[in-house]
Amino acid sequence: MDHASPLERILRGVALTVVVVFFMFPLVWILLMSFQTNETILRSPPSLVFQPTLDNYRALLGGRLVGAGSTLQVSYVQNLMNSVILSVSSVSLALLLGVPAAYAFARFRFRGSEDIAFTLLSFRFAPPLLVLLPLALYFQQIGLANTYIGLIWVYQLIVLPLILWIVRGYFEDISPDVEYAYRLAGHSWFAAFRKIALPLAGPGIAAAGLLAFIFAWNNFVFALVLASADKQPVTVGALAFITASGIQFGQIAAAIVLSNAPTLLLALYAQRHLVEGLSLGAVKG
């Protein structure tokens, strides 16, 4: 829309720049830090001129952090793998369970359907620490503590409600007549679900899956309590960089860059498809 006066336009440009700088600065700064040694990071005043080094990444992937006078063994690659395993599995499981459930909530009005849907959403409201302690005790007793299965199960608390509520909205936006038309053509309701509802809600399911993936990837507190070193995701693993002999800023920065890269790339890749999916048929005469 273009109804602004020149002054309004300039002010708008300035405001946008401020916002972009505000949000992009930490990311850029972290990226720059990851190519510097601790010494150059900590010099005062800070400077943008430095000799780039890949040492931080080398140390991370090699698993050996060399600090001031000591060497620390870290399992960063293992942590990264754990993050992938936990996020991918929990999102897949949540899609498998959540999409049909979302469809049921969107299409069928059964007794208590609103209450059940709301209860599921309310898991998002509860502070995680509230459920964590009892959960940790249970998990220890039934042997789920420190297992992938246990963690994936707990991750459902984060991802399932998200997927359920987003996808439900998309299903509700599809006219039931379109599905009726498919059934009247002689196809079963399950075929109508698979061939009509699923593809039409596709962009929504993708969006929900992506969002859930990011939430799962960034989760910290569940894994901190319920997983020990060999099952830890990167979010928890990065704690190891705070050592007794100092904080390894360069390596933390490199770890952050590496751990954020998958979600960032995924979002960038999916963005195009999401926007395409959402803007279909938006032009009207």
Binding site: D177, V178, Y180, L184, S188, W189, I196, G281
Partner: peptide
């Protein structure tokens, strides 16, 4: 009987075509 077994054809007011 469910709709798919009735052998009925129906045209909807809003067309209800499969957009994909």
């Amino acid at each position: 009987e469910p709709p798919e077994d009735r052998g009925v054809g129906m045209a909807f007011q809003n067309f209800a075509l499969f957009p994909h």
